[in-house]
Amino acid sequence: MISRRNIRVKVMQSLYTLDSISNDIQSGDAIKLLNKQIEQSRQLFIYLTYFLTEVARYAEADALKKASKHLPSEKDLNINTKIAGNELLWKILETPSYKTAVNYFKPEQSIDGELLKKTYQALTASEEYKEYISIPARDKKSEKDILQFIFTNLMLPNEDFIHNVEEQFINWDDDAEMMNVLMLNFLQKPQSYNFDEFVSTEKMDFGKSLLLTTIDKKPVSMELLKPKLKNWDAERIATLDLIIIQMGICEFLFFETIPTKVTINEYIDLAKDYSTPQSGQFINGILDNIHKELSAAGKIDKKTFKNSKL
């Protein structure tokens, strides 16, 4: 489900955590932390998916509640429940791996009922929803668009919702961007997602290897890096920037199927997204300089990467 870029983020976050708690890092502890980081992300994604589906399903509960009034009005008896039968919604709900994940993590125990109700009310008050229910027919695009609208326009911008998520998931700030991309991709092709395999074996192996290599080869990467820092105040360089550079150097030297251009671009983007405003330019200059030096010395040996999964 998650991409190599997401794996790099998880490795970067693991290295940052390890750097802050210990100078003597055991490989087993590092892998445990990486696994924990990924499992937290999986749980967060399941929670977001569950909340989204419950907003859509709330139409039935709302209709039943209003129809059960002592003296229901005509409006109470004619609540439109089209969204509760949303075809994409039911593809998600009937996915075996999703059912298993919900049964295991039990996100229903963490749902704020009042927040769910308010989100549904915001949905029914929106012009997008009114347009959706005004057309009896169903088509794939409108079914997807209304669920995407709930997530993008009603969940993410909602301060109460974000506060609720932050209280339950300490990794929200780190994972917010990744969750947004994951959800939008998921709504495009939910059948291609396996909640039991949040990370493929190939990507997990890449993550473990990148994590352990960056730790093990730190002396090598720092030896290459230090001469490039002569014009920089080492004390003012963000720890995250140093970690990103070390990861990039390790990909240059020890990951022979990953093109150097891909490595440089990936870590520039990570620096921009997760470090300081100046980090992207700094990382670009340092990695490009080291890349040229290693290439000139014949130390970068890349195999063909024509068919490799980057």
Rank of each mutant, 00 (worst) to 15 (best):
M1G: 08
R5M: 09
N6L: 01
R8G: 06
Q13D: 05
S14K: 03
Y16T: 06
S20F: 00
S20P: 01
N23R: 12
L34M: 10
N35H: 04
N35V: 03
Q37I: 05
I38L: 15
Y50S: 12
V55I: 13
A59R: 11
E60H: 08
D62P: 01
L71F: 11
S73H: 04
D76P: 02
N78P: 02
N78F: 03
N78A: 07
A84V: 03
N86M: 10
E87K: 15
W90L: 13
W90N: 15
P96L: 03
S97Y: 01
Y98F: 13
K99M: 10
T100H: 11
E108P: 02
E108S: 13
E108M: 12
Q109I: 10
S110C: 04
I111F: 06
G113V: 03
L115W: 02
L116N: 06
T119E: 07
Y120H: 08
Q121W: 00
A125P: 00
A125D: 09
A125F: 00
S126W: 00
S134E: 09
A137P: 02
R138V: 10
K140V: 11
K141W: 04
I150R: 00
N164E: 05
N164S: 14
N164H: 09
F169L: 06
A176F: 00
M179W: 00
V181K: 09
L184A: 00
L184Q: 06
Q188A: 04
P190K: 06
D196S: 13
E197R: 14
F198L: 12
S200H: 05
T201D: 14
D205C: 09
F206D: 07
L210N: 10
L212Q: 09
T214G: 06
I215R: 06
S221Y: 08
M222N: 13
N231G: 14
W232D: 11
W232F: 08
R236Y: 10
A238C: 01
M247C: 06
I249C: 07
C250A: 11
E251G: 11
F254R: 12
T257D: 14
T257V: 15
P259Q: 08
I264F: 01
N265Y: 02
D269Q: 10
L270Q: 06
A271E: 04
K272N: 11
S275D: 04
F282H: 08
L287T: 07
K292E: 12
E293R: 09
L294V: 07
A297N: 13
D301E: 15
T304N: 15
F305H: 15
K309I: 13
